[in-house]
Design a protein around this nucleic acid. Structure first.
Lengths: 197, 197, 197, 197
DNA sequence: ACGCACGGGACCACCCGTTATT
DNA sequence: AATAACGGGTGGTCCCGTGCGT
């Protein structure tokens, strides 16, 4: 079977995520990944063309998961403020569970800025997130929970940017215990200003 | 004289900024910096202890400049919304003038996350920025331009995070012509929600 | 097979011995070793962790061989003076065959003085040699060929020190033709003083 | 005046001795010597042509001192065994006072083996030491304290070699407290074998 | 007599990717 | 499918010595 093969590939991907998170893309060597995964270089280059290929694989998985989560939120039949509240409520959870892989986010960003291949793989999903939120705000306006004079696209853009900014701040701040709560409050501060009444 | 020395050091710093911005810290070689600066490796290591030392030097200069600009804004005797409006108005200018060095910002952040030395050099000024903005908001509340029930610290934190997020977005977006304007609008969206009446 | 591997490793070790002997440990570059061995740097660092690792490998091999030879002498059932005589008789042979690698001995010593790792690798066997000789002298006393009032440990220590001193002298003296004979005479001079009657 | 000049030169020489002893000739950088001496490289290269020049200067000083001490012993009007006894008695003193510079001895030896310039500077004095001792033994024979059938040259050579060997052993042994005494005993063991009666 | 800035060249370690081998 | 050996090249650091200036 090729079950064994899939397993090896999984180990490599997992190891790569760990290494990239810990030391960054550039500073991580292929040998290091192999050692962490417990496989040989031959195995690595059998499954992936290059170091970048693993990185892209990682990126795609991350983006797909993010979009899935987002769409799950969107399709619920709930008022927008409630949705955002839930979302922010899950910030701390995100941090606690996937906190180790969070530095990867920065790594993705920086590589995307430099490498056109990574860029095009990252920018499209990113735009889609903005569109999803814009759609949410539109619904919010039509359902009367958001002020009518708000530009839904601008609001979406702002919200996403704020989230990104808060994420970066969370990276720097060692006080991760409070990060989720504080971030939720920040988002609420923004959203409160958009709410009607 | 040691005028020559200062000149050489300046050339190195400038070259390093260029290279780091273009290729990132890790991918930039010392030889590359030297070649760009037009100096020898001997000269480089005469002025700096290591590659990291140049990086730190760059970071400190950047942070100092930022703080200077911020304090200049703060000390003006103007209503807060007007101050923020001016600030956002200068966003586009920043992008046009120092746009090439903006990737350095990300580089700073990522290195700060990894290296404790860089971190402690970056985190203090960052906290100071937050405090400056918090002070601004306090003044805004007392002068009656900001809602009384706003937590000034939270507002400051949110504003800075938003700025950081917008900056990152600007990096990704090739359409830099509109970035300044769009960012200004985002900030206004946030601030409008905080304004009284 | 891994026969090829063993061969490469052997070539590297041999080349390293040559280079260290000729130019010394510090002055020998890894590239030089590789060039002499006819292998690439990749191969070198595949087989050894560092330059020091090859050195230690060399040292261990040398010490092991020495101990083997010594024990072979010890286990013969012959009167002590005869044993020593044979040993000194082989001095010249040593010089002629392994003469080129003799400078390594000094290199070992100096590195052992400086580096604790090398030191602990060298000092134990060295002490063992002293013990072996001490044992020999004890046997010599009990068999009546050595004066009874001789301290066997002191005699062993003195003999080893003399051998070391003669080795160093041999390094300096370009007149290697006579070195073996002269050294044998020196040792006999010492031993004669210890013999009974 | 050039008193200042001499002072600087002295500082450099002293610093070089310290550095060479601590890290060895090859591993010691000129900058390191300068830093230790508290002078600039300009000063260094004003007084010495190269790193080797300082080394040679050091070597010559050392050899001259040694010869002076030896001749002082020789010219005393004392029986040989007494002279040797005194000499060995001063072993421990040597170790305690000049112990730090003792590694220089090894450094001298190894450099002498490699560099003809150093070699010729070192070999002549070394031979002279042997001759001095040979002369001593001759006197010892004629005064009746040494066996008549002893070859004075061989005895001298053996004695010097033993001293050298003991010196090297002292380098390796961390237990320097006992080294002087033990060495004295070793020399006595050899000399006792040469004494008449 | 001495100080500082500098030149250019090496060295060790390591890294990415490939080939021989199983 | 996976291993181990290998190739060649780069990277940061440091070093010896020079030359200008005082």
């Amino acid at each position: 079977v090729q079950k064994r093969s899939e397993e090896t590939k999984g180990k490599i991907i997992h190891a790569a995520a760990t290494c990239f998170s810990k030391n960054g893309y550039d500073a991580t060597g292929v040998s290091e990944i192999c050692a962490t995964a417990g496989v040989s270089k031959g195995a690595f280059y059998h499954h992936f063309e290059s170091k970048q290929a693993v990185f892209l694989c990682l990126l795609e998985g991350w983006l797909a998961e993010l979009e899935r989560d987002l769409l799950a939120l969107y399709q619920q039949d709930t008022p927008l403020p409630e949705i955002l509240s839930r979302m922010t409520g899950s910030f701390q959870v995100i941090f606690d569970t996937a906190g180790d892989q969070l530095p990867m986010f920065l790594e993705f960003w920086i590589q995307a800025w430099r490498d056109p291949v990574v860029w095009s793989a990252a920018i499209k999903p990113y735009r889609r997130y903005q569109e999803i939120f814009a759609e949410m705000f539109k619904v919010g306006i039509s359902e009367g929970s958001i002020k009518e004079d708000i530009d839904s696209k601008l609001a979406a853009r702002t919200l996403v940017a704020l989230a990104v900014g808060l994420l970066l701040e969370g990276l720097m701040d060692p006080d991760k215990g409070d990060w989720g709560k504080a971030s939720a409050e920040s988002v609420r501060l923004l959203v409160d200003g958009l709410k009607k009444g």
